[in-house]
Amino acid sequence: MGQSLSDEQWRLIEPHIPVYPGGRPRTTDLRDVVDAVFYILRTGCQWRYLPKDFPPKSTVWRYFDEWRHNGTLDTIHDLLRKKVRTQEKPYAPRTTASVDSQSVDTTSGGEQRGRDNAKNVDGRKRHIVVDSLGLLLAVLVTAASVDDAQAAQELFPRLEGQPVGKVVRMYADSKYHNFALYAWVEDNARWDLVIVRRPEGSKGWVKLPIRWTVERTFAWLGTCRRLTKDREESVMSAEAFIKLAMIHLMLNRLEPKYADPEFQYHKAA
């Protein structure tokens, strides 16, 4: 089976995967492990059905579990985001961001599940903050029954340490029109929460100005079959696969695989 990552893409992330001294010599190629995780992300394959071309599923899971706990995925994600931002908007600090949620069905089992009656979904809800390029700044996964404005008070603190020092406006839709949330923003944030409302009398889906950037990010996530439903036992894994999807996307924006038409839209976007 061919490599999921090109040599150029692997060089972008290899230095940031921790290698611990001591112990027995490593026999597993970490590039094969990363390729296996991306294979699961892209195809929706269950861990136990990982093709034999890859390392054993127990080995791949062990590294995935380690990287989601020790900050490796966060480090790689944030470094790639900085490179993409520098390449596509050099010398332009972020001044705006957008927040939104997406309710998705879950497979059976797992923690934090609920029903979003408005969307007729039984499962979980993904809450994200993105910048004007659609790049991820924060993510939170909850039960689908959790109110968006309530979740935002847990999501927004995750912006701590992220490059949002110049952000002055956070765009949101009418789901975030909530006085408790306004009070939280007033007390804790340096930016203003701006509600972008649908045109009066409109029905069905409407492309709202500015808001389309976060909706496009959800569309990007949807190209990964692992994310078409929430298939994870834990919300930590659910959040980790969202970050992996963004890592995959950014690798292909920085080092596009022009031979693979699946990736060309990322460059066009």
Rank of each mutant, 00 (worst) to 15 (best):
V99G: 00
I76W: 07
D100I: 04
P21W: 06
D122Y: 15
Q162W: 05
D122R: 14
A151Y: 04
A245H: 03
A144H: 06
A143K: 06
L249Q: 07
A183G: 05
W212S: 06
G22S: 06
L244I: 07
D260V: 10
P18H: 09
L181T: 10
D187M: 14
H177K: 13
L244D: 00
V60Y: 02
S145G: 07
G71Q: 15
R226T: 01
K52N: 12
P25S: 14
R225G: 01
V37T: 08
D65I: 05
A180K: 15
L221Y: 11
A269E: 15
K229G: 02
A245T: 09
S6V: 00
E160L: 11
P163E: 09
M1H: 14
A238I: 08
P209T: 04
P199Q: 11
P21K: 13
S132D: 14
R31I: 01
G44P: 10
T107L: 12
K119C: 03
S202G: 06
K207H: 11
L155E: 04
M246T: 13
L221I: 06
L251P: 00
W191K: 05
F156H: 02
L133Q: 15
R225L: 10
L135P: 07
S4N: 13
K89L: 14
L137E: 06
A138W: 04
K83W: 05
A172Y: 01
G222N: 14
M236V: 14
L73A: 09
G123I: 07
A183H: 11
E160A: 14
R158V: 02
A149K: 09
L140A: 04
T223R: 15
W205Y: 14
I247F: 00
R169Q: 12
T86D: 14
V33K: 01
G222W: 08
Y63S: 10
E262I: 05
R68T: 05
A151L: 02
R68D: 01
L5S: 02
A259E: 14
Y20E: 05
K257I: 12
R94N: 10
H248A: 00
E262K: 13
P51I: 09
A183Y: 12
N252W: 07
Y63I: 02
A144R: 03
V33R: 01
S174T: 13
V196Y: 04
D116F: 04
Q102Y: 09
F156Y: 15
W191L: 10
G44L: 07
S108F: 08
K119D: 07
A180F: 11
W61N: 09
T107M: 01
L193N: 00
V235K: 03
N252P: 05
P18Y: 11
I242F: 03
R216M: 10
P163G: 06
L80E: 04
V34N: 02
D74L: 11
W184M: 04
R24G: 12
L133E: 12
T228L: 09
V130F: 06
I210G: 04
E88L: 15
P15E: 13
